[in-house]
Design a protein around this nucleic acid. Sequence first.
RNA 1: GGGGAGAUUCCCGAGUGGUCAAAGGGGGCAGACUGUAAAUCUGUUGGCUACGCCUUCGAAGGUUCAAAUCCUUCUCUCCCCA
Length: 404
Amino acid sequence: MDCMDILRERGFVQQCTDSEGLSKAMREGPVTFYVGVDPTGPSLHIGHMVPFFALRHLRQAGHIGVALLGGGTARIGDPSGKSEMRKMISYDAIDANTELFRKQLDRFVGFDGKTSFPANNKDWLADLNYIDFLRDIGRHFSVNKMLSFEAYRIRMETGLSFVEFNYQLLQSFDFLELFRRHRCTLQIGGDDQWGNIVAGIDLIRRVEGAEAFGLTFPLIMTSDGKKMGKTEKGALFLDPEMISPWDFYQYWRNIMDQDVGRFLLLFTFLEAEECHALALGDINEAKKRLAWEVTAIIHGRDAADKAATAAAAAFGSGGDLSQVPTKTMQRTTLDSGIGVLDLFVLSALAPTKSEARRLIQQGGALINDRKIDDEKLVIDSSWCPEGDLILRAGKKRIFRFTVG
RNA sequence: GGGGAGAUUCCCGAGUGGUCAAAGGGGGCAGACUGUAAAUCUGUUGGCUACGCCUUCGAAGGUUCAAAUCCUUCUCUCCCCA
């Protein structure tokens, strides 16, 4: 079984320009490939990660992975898969994001400079000469052909600016540049990148007369048809400051039954047989395993253990609640008493007092397992002889105050 | 450049002088049922020092006792023509 089979078995493969040819090339020796991400925000989210999981599988099989940070392309904005034009981001913000992405990817991939390393297309895109670029690269692109791509067709409805229309040329140029610099002959990415990838392959063929490959992964959806990785707070970011390991763990713990097997294969490195076995067994145990594995991969084993312990305590038969999301409260604050509404707002379980009030009215507010039905109630030291206040909002949200 | 349409609360989308904090749907939150799942049903969904007050209907002005609704200017978007 070669690594294409592994990827296929794990549900990574959506489209491939030439899977026979690619398998052959891979058998003949290490293939250098790349995945690109545009640093358009302060953190990667789980939706970015599918190609990077694939990167690790491919590297495992002896191939060489380049993580291309789109410090240059982020200045333009990729219209693929989007119905609206993306806001322009300042150069400073892009540079800052690039660095944040690089660190997160280093953590996940573990760049060693040989089998995997980062690159930044800002290095070759930022100072391109427009006229030269048009003459050397632009002439290979047919507008007619570009317009036939699905990505652009969608935007024909809502509007497509010339800047975004150029994105494909830049990404194609990236591929060419990586081919020239590193003999990179394979680009992998989400299926929305298909058009851009194919365009790059064409460019390499025309300019260098060389053969390159493209491989795309499915856009991961949850079984109820939503884009995977969406939460109330937005995307499922990898930055623990944006999405705490607790929330991250909870996301996976609460996915739908039907998704467990698929996600185990995509987002963990457990053997395929084990993934299948887990999905066929006790589904709740499988979810716990999935949640632990993914949390461990992203945030480390320690964080995963803590999240699992906290979850067991919060939803199981009591136990150690010390790992649940926690804040410290001043002894003096508690001594003078604090209104329940303020307390819930302070915990962030309720964004406003009105929300807190609603929560209480609907019977979803608990403190130390006592149901709160009076919104004017004042909480003081007598509530926590043990030193902790455990607030619950509904059945799934929990917060702990330690007094200190 | 000319002509037309539009910008509404988290999203979509009603509303065209007071009865509008603004229909309906989606999403969210809570309750019931469960397995921390899904589906389903119910309630709720701007804020606050809450039977009242404040902020919201692209932005700024104006008319009026009263404006999301009328007038002026501006910004942005879409469509048709050049």
